[in-house]
Nucleic acid binder design. Structure first.
Lengths: 210, 210
DNA sequence: TTTTTTTTCAAACATATGTTTTAATTGAAC
DNA sequence: GTTCAATTAAAACATATGTTTGAAAAAAAA
């Protein structure tokens, strides 16, 4: 078994189980059992359970955040060149679209994005802290751009509206493909494009509310 | 120590710790230590850790849900009497307002409402399942009223918009009073009335979006 | 091929945890 | 005051868990 295989298998297994059971409720024996590797491999390759969580986030969040950052920079640059304010819709789309589209980017991505969707309110300090370390710069960037896009809103109100939007997105991600609390006759779409469009409509309307 | 004291102390302690650390990451020894009671009291009074969680939810969610149900029934009844459709804003207010107002209803309520805010996406199956058992009837009721309020929306789209609204509310609850990811110069209001008003503006705008 | 480094392995270590047991204590009923 | 029921308490039980250890195996380097 090659080095790359062992690490990847552990990461895949951890991602799968963290998404389904949470960090603390997932044991290293469950992860290594599912990955078909030895328990001590976690310590050898990652150092600790917390470091494994960090690696799980980093593996996918760094590329995702790069896309989102590039998108946001493009929004800003385009607006600057055209001598206008950034648009609310394009700013939020720049952030939300790649996030939701991540669901279909490969095996395991669906699980990972579920972790992301609820990370900010995860009861586990460890999860929340690891996530915030990765997301804070991007969050500030989005906030700044929205401040430009909505100059008539106070920063405080904008902050809260952005939290509402992030909450809506996070919950949508967690609920996508799930089937509890379904009213009769409702078969909610779960294709990424439709969901993204609906979510954007919702949050943009809320952000732009006079 | 009276019976009422022991049970109440355990419930208070459990509520406090479940809110801060989550269900699985909170041990019975931590709960009983904080409550100043013996470890075996949990089994004696509640039967199991899961049953304790159920009791924690039930203690406050039953009265909260009663208020919300009464509010929703009043919305429906008033609209019927006036021969009009229920309003989106009054329907959502009927649900959201008592939920956020719960934060200041007494010692421990703030912790409890944090549990509620993230219960639907909690990584712990146990938490999620207990919560859904309590919330499903009310959710359906709210959904039905909103179907009447927004007859031009398909049930599927309405379902998703309601999920976005619930996500926004849940996240707002979890973030209220917290201070991570604060941009410079932002001091977000955390008084319940302001937060409720902002949240309602946001979600009503999103729900009513053409 | 030999030596060195890396990786894997099974067992051990040191706690941690929900549940159960049994006896003692307290409270209620007579 | 005595008896019965309820409650509390400490210890035990049966696992569960992240981390560490030292040897063996595999891979890389010389």
């Amino acid at each position: 078994m090659s080095l790359a295989d062992t690490k990847e298998r552990i990461l895949d297994s951890a991602e799968y189980l963290f998404a389904r059971k949470g960090f603390h409720n997932t044991s290293l024996r469950a992860i290594t059992g599912r990955a078909g590797v030895n328990l001590a491999a976690v310590n050898y390759h990652f150092g600790s359970k917390e470091a494994l969580l960090e690696a799980v986030f980093e593996r996918r969040l760094v590329p995702l955040n790069n896309i989102r950052r590039e998108n946001l920079e493009a929004v800003r640059e385009t607006a600057r060149k055209e001598g206008r304010l950034p648009g609310v819709q394009e700013s939020l789309r720049a952030f939300i679209e790649p996030t939701l589209a991540f669901r279909k980017s490969g095996t395991g991505a669906e699980d990972f994005i579920t972790l992301v969707g609820r990370a900010m309110s995860d009861p586990d300090d460890t999860v929340r802290n690891v996530f915030i370390r990765h997301i804070a710069p991007l969050f500030y960037m989005l906030f700044d751009i929205l401040c430009e896009a909505l100059p008539e809103l106070s920063p405080d109100m904008l902050f809260w509206r952005l939290q509402f939007a992030i909450g809506a997105m996070g919950h949508a991600i967690c609920m996508a493909g799930k089937s509890y609390s379904l009213p009769d006759g409702v078969t909610p779409v779960s294709d990424v494009e439709s969901l993204t469009a609906m979510l954007l409509d919702f949050v943009v309307a809320g952000m732009e509310r006079p």
